[in-house]
Nucleic acid binder design. Structure first.
Ligand SMILES: Nc1ccn([C@H]2C[C@H](O)[C@@H](COP(=O)(O)OP(=O)(O)OP(=O)(O)O)O2)c(=O)n1
Ligand SMILES: [Mg+2]
Length: 1080
DNA sequence: ATCCTCCCCTAC
DNA sequence: TAAGGTAGGGGAGGAT
């Protein structure tokens, strides 16, 4: 259209399509639900558009049913422009912030209205901040007093990952944001009208009634104004991304960058040392494999590392409060970060990561000392030198911190050997570095880390296995490693403060609230269980470079230039470690709509994060290649240049040595087959001096479809210019529909196409291809079919079939630049997070949605009408296929089968009251699905979407099962000849620890009154097998697990204790047979 | 179920 | 002024 923002247009179109698809899909489900309702109801909710957030008392699914039934519009997603009301039971601060502009009401508003047959005033049901959120308001003062009274607990405010309490307070009290509480720039509406159109001016806001009465949100800050003002200051300009030397200078001064690169180096050193050591000890049997009974993990960590090193050369400061920072704190409101402060300063409430200004408020006498990066590195080298002498294994955690396996140092238990060992290490560190380190020890990483916290400062602590329970119970949840700000908030919502309380939370709740892995980890941690080994040799999986400070652009050229520099930077980093990658990701931080100038000087402030990745067909470390792809990725976004606050590039899917070989071979093979083409291309360019590559415009999608060696050739021989087919970028005519995310109008600040926009003309592409005559037919034939087609089409397009070519790119582009990248903007997620004022927000855009069991997805649709079921299987067979068929043990005992029927029914009915009979509608029962791709079925196009989906899933599931079956069959076949290889014992098809645990939990839960003796026998046999396989650790862990889960309240403790005891005795007996010693 | 992408989170 | 980087675990939701 008239504007020059085709990129915006395409994005817009996709956005709409995406949401529309989504909506129609979900709406189908609704009409189903709605039709189920009786007639004669009063549509009290007519005209309302309601979104349900989080956990509600009548559960989400029930509310949804009611809303639809009573004429309301249920919104699965929080779509700003549409939603009129949000249902929620509680509101934490972050949600409060996010929902600022909506009517947030309790579920009772719905139920009461329905009951009374009329819509009641929503204001009566307004959700106000909950208690826990209120409490947080007083966090600041508390922090101060608490910290001063108990220095050992200082970790309770972990350095980073905490929002500035004061900031948080301001937000929740007055719904003011960073911008409004610190208005740097006056923003008269006058200027807005003069300046370019405001794409972010919010059209949706007025539609949704305000949560509060204030007007502020109508005057959103303008990115351009903010930026212009900031960059008008030459000081700022010189220190921002507009300066070409910026990146280098920035990284030189960034403590976090130093920290990260040091860590990478250390991990590398440790890895290499280990490799060498393994080399030299190859002949010796490796004994220290997995003997957890004597495991001793030591966690060593310098006290206030940067500060200690700095104080060493400034002894006069030792007794004063000291902090390391760039800012000298001259200006009284310095937003400079404190990297590290000594314990004197901490007694005032000062913390690592805090801004100097705030710290000075707490401690006016705070002494600021500068960074001395070289010194930190020197001390660190000495430190690791010491560790290498003691440790069986080392995991580098940081410059000043490491985890060690020290089991070999302990000969006899109970002789305090741990303490003297720690003392020895600490003394040596003190002597050789002049700094204090603290040490924590325990039987696993978790306990060691917790012990360090308890030990600090300047001490050590051994968490004796006997004391674990008591020691753990008193810990605060946020002291658990991995629990940071976000999880702490979640716990706060749940009313969980201590690890002891956490232990009382049912595992099912943890799993559903935190996900399978995290839930299990939390469950284990609260019991002192931590199976993780030290990570000592894991190779690097990604390399990235990011800058989220000082990023202020005026136009697109600056962005592209900056991405160029960043690409070079990352290319150098890749080369330095001699690795290449094939996945490139661009991440862009964009100023949140309502955010003004960042709290931190030149910081990114509150941002939305957007990323886009591309997977290449080849490995690369080439700066130009990387730059081209990230620049292209950038164009798939539509941000204003002035709103960009951070940029980063990540390279993933790195080659390891094996890959490199494979890929080289792979390439060579292909190259051989493609020799003639290759030669032709290279040859034709040989006349030209290397330096002046010919320019070539090429459609990006087209390029991506080319074989990898051709891509490489093109990159090496030409200066590529990616273009995009303008036809596919056309702005949809529905543009003016107002409920869409506002699009940037054309303006200088827009990410506009590259200066040289080349219209789609295949002839422009042709010069890159060899002449027809040079194309070796055998080479062409050697290519996979789809590539053949592409090559041929590339040639064809020069003459007749331009059409085809365009069509082709259009479709690939459609799927290639998916609307996924838009999610952040449409979810409208915006909230503060992280530490003192930084932040890329993160109110999770993904609310917990109803999780449908597979069967539930059928939602009452009568599949039978479409497909008469094949001869029905027996119930038991049917059930056998189910995941839940835990204890249908090999001998086919009936108790197991009974149990399973029950379980399945419940599973099926979960939450939606579907009749058990629906089990029989499991699509896998329909022969039509068997082996046939659903899409190849004639009836396919006529099926409702969710049925299609269902069939697809079933199909893929079947395929997978076949694959697995084939595999096991062949595996077995292979294995049989090679006789006596011990296979891993399996319990109901599961072998890994977590799975078996889950099985056991399900078992115990299912038979809470008493176990079936056959099941006990099955489990016992399994444990015995483990004993034979020398997997004693697993035996131990599983028995502990059984101990734990049979002590739950819902369990009949007597019968179960007996059974478990019996199992233990059997295992012990087996131990004596196998090893001559009983269970420890 | 498993894989992939786009996040979020955590730690130093 | 100020230098809010980064690797890796993991979850949600979609595609296959
Ligand atoms: N937000 C943070 C946290 C840490 N660091 C740097 C400075 C620290 O000295 C070093 C080590 O981090 P620690 O978490 O170990 O903190 P300290 O060593 O300073 O204190 P302590 O370990 O005694 O709690 O990392 C930083 O720059 N910024
Ligand atoms: Mg430390």
């Amino acid at each position: 259209m008239a504007d020059q923002d085709p990129y915006g247009a395409i994005k817009f179109g996709e956005f709409r399509k995406y949401m529309q698809n989504k909506e129609s899909k979900l709406k189908e489900q609704e009409s189903i639900l709605g039709n189920q309702g009786e007639s004669g109801i009063i549509p009290v909710l007519q005209g309302l558009s309601i979104h349900v957030n989080g956990y509600t008392d009548p559960p989400q699914s029930e509310l949804r049913r009611l809303i639809v039934q009573y004429g309301g519009d249920y919104q699965h997603y929080l779509k700003k422009s549409k939603v009129t009301h949000i249902i929620a039971t509680t509101l934490t601060n972050s949600k409060m912030e996010e929902f600022r502009a909506y009517k947030v009401v309790t579920p009772n508003w719905i139920t009461d209205s329905i009951q009374q047959g009329q819509l009641l005033p929503w204001t009566e049901y307004r959700v106000i901040q909950n208690q826990s959120a209120q409490r947080e308001l007083s966090f600041g003062p508390q922090l101060t007093s608490k910290a001063s009274s108990s220095p050992l607990q200082t970790r309770q405010t972990t350095p980073k990952a905490k929002p500035d309490p004061t900031l948080q307070k301001a937000k929740s009290l007055s719904t003011r944001t960073e911008s409004t509480s610190k208005p740097l720039l006056p923003l008269p509406q006058l200027q807005q009208s003069i300046s370019t159109p405001q794409p972010y001016t919010d059209i949706s806001m007025p539609i949704s009634p305000h949560y509060t009465t204030e007007q502020e949100q109508n005057q959103l800050p303008s990115g351009k104004e903010l930026n212009t003002a900031l960059l008008a200051n030459p000081w700022n300009r010189n220190n921002s991304s507009t300066n070409p030397d910026f990146i280098k200078k920035y990284y030189q001064s960034s403590r976090l960058h130093h920290l990260s690169s040091w860590k990478a180096e250390l991990k590398d050193i440790v890895r290499k040392a280990k490799e060498q050591q393994q080399e030299s000890t190859r002949l010796r049997p490796i004994s220290s494999k997995r003997n957890d009974s004597h495991r001793l993990v030591m966690h060593v960590d310098f006290d206030c590392f940067f500060a200690s090193v700095g104080i060493k050369s400034r002894p006069e400061l030792a007794k004063l409060p000291v902090a390391v920072s760039h800012g000298k704190g001259l200006s009284k409101n310095s937003s400079s970060d404190i990297a590290s402060c000594n314990y004197v300063a901490r007694s005032f409430g000062v913390r690592n990561g805090m801004h100097v200004g705030r710290a000075k408020e707490l401690c006016p006498n705070l002494q600021i000392i500068p960074y001395e990066f070289e010194k930190y590195k020197e001390v660190s080298e000495i430190f690791y030198g010491i560790l290498f002498q003691y440790a069986d294994e080392i995991q580098a955690v940081s410059v000043d911190e490491a985890l060690l396996e020290m089991g070999s140092h302990i000969t006899v238990a109970g002789r305090n050997e741990e303490e003297s060992l720690a003392l020895m290490v600490r003394n040596e560190i003190r002597k050789k570095t002049g700094c204090e380190a603290s040490i924590g020890m325990g039987a696993n990483i978790l306990l060691a880390r917790l012990a360090t916290k308890k030990a600090k400062p300047c001490n050590h602590y051994y968490c004796d296995p006997q004391d674990v329970a008591a020691f753990l119970s008193e810990q605060k949840v946020e002291d658990l490693p991995g629990v940071g700000y976000a999880m702490k908030s979640k716990f706060q919502d749940m009313g969980v403060t201590t690890v002891g309380q956490l232990r009382q939370v049912a595992k099912s709740i943890l799993l559903s609230k935190f996900g399978p892995k995290t839930g299990q980890t939390l469950y284990d941690f609260s019991r002192g269980i931590d199976d993780r080994r030290l990570i000592t040799k894991q190779p690097r999986q990604s390399v990235s470079a990011e800058v989220n400070w000082g990023v202020r652009f005026e136009n697109n050229e600056q962005i592209e230039a900056f991405l160029g520099s960043l690409s070079s930077e990352i290319s150098e980093r890749l080369k330095a470690i001699d690795r290449k990658g094939k996945s490139i990701t661009l991440k862009v931080l964009v100023r949140a709509k309502h955010a003004g100038e960042a709290a931190k000087h030149l910081g990114c402030g509150e941002c939305d994060s957007h990323s886009k990745s591309v997977v290449l067909d080849f490995f690369t470390d080439d700066a130009d290649v990387i730059a081209k792809h990230v620049k292209h990725a950038l164009k798939s976004f539509t941000f204003l240049a002035v709103d960009i606050r951070g940029l980063s590039i990540q390279i993933q899917k790195l080659n390891n040595d094996a890959d490199q070989n494979i890929s080289v071979e792979d390439n060579q093979q292909r190259r051989l087959k493609f020799d003639s083409v290759h030669d032709a291309v290279t040859h034709s360019n040989q006349h030209k001096p290397e330096s002046s590559k010919s320019k070539m415009a090429i459609d990006y999608e087209m390029y991506m479809e080319l074989p990898q060696d051709i891509q490489r050739e093109l990159n090496e021989e030409h200066e590529l210019e990616f273009i995009t087919n303008p036809q596919q970028e056309d702005r949809p005519t529905e543009l003016h529909q107002k409920d869409q995310t506002p699009e940037p109008a054309a303006s200088n600040e827009n990410i506009t196409p590259p200066p040289a926009v080349v219209t789609q003309d295949p002839s422009q592409f042709l010069p890159a291809l060899p002449n027809w005559s040079q194309l070796d037919p055998s080479a062409l034939l050697a290519l996979p079919q789809n590539m053949q087609k592409q090559v041929l089409e590339a040639y064809k397009s020069s003459t007749s079939s331009k059409h085809q070519y365009i069509d082709n790119t259009t479709t690939t582009a459609d799927t290639g630049s998916k609307p996924i990248s838009l999610k952040p903007s449409l979810s409208g997620n915006t909230s503060a997070n992280g530490d003192y004022g930084k932040i890329t927000k993160s109110t999770s855009p993904r609310r917990s949605k109803p999780r449908f069991s597979k069967k539930k997805n059928l939602n009452g649709i009568t599949l039978t009408q479409l497909f008469p079921p094949s001869p029905k299987r027996t119930t038991i067979q049917n059930v056998e296929d189910d995941e839940g068929a835990l204890f249908l043990s090999g001998d086919g005992n009936t108790t197991g089968a009974q149990l399973m029927v029950g379980t399945t029914d419940r599973y099926t009915m979960e939450g939606n009251g579907l009749a058990p009979a629906i089990r029989d509608l499991n699509p896998s029962d329909f022969t039509l699905v068997n082996g046939t791709h659903p899409k190849s079925m004639e009836i396919w196009p006529q099926l409702p979407k969710d049925i299609q989906q269902e069939l697809l899933q079933t199909y893929y599931q079947e395929q997978r099962q076949k694959r697995i079956q084939n595999k096991t069959v062949t595996d077995v076949q292979k294995r049989i000849p090679s006789a006596p290889i011990q296979t891993e014992p399996i319990l109901m098809g599961k072998s890994n620890l977590a799975d078996v645990r889950t099985l056991l939990s399900a078992w115990v839960h299912e038979f809470s009154s008493a176990p079936d003796s056959k099941d006990v026998q099955t489990v016992t046999n399994y444990l015995k097998e483990l004993v034979w396989c020398k997997d004693l650790e697993k035996v131990q862990l599983l028995l502990m697990h059984l101990d734990r889960i049979t002590q739950a309240d819902s369990i009949n403790k007597t019968t179960w204790a007996n059974s478990v005891q019996g199992m233990k005795e059997s295992v012990s007996h087996e131990m004596i047979i196998v090893y001559g010693a009983p269970l420890g």
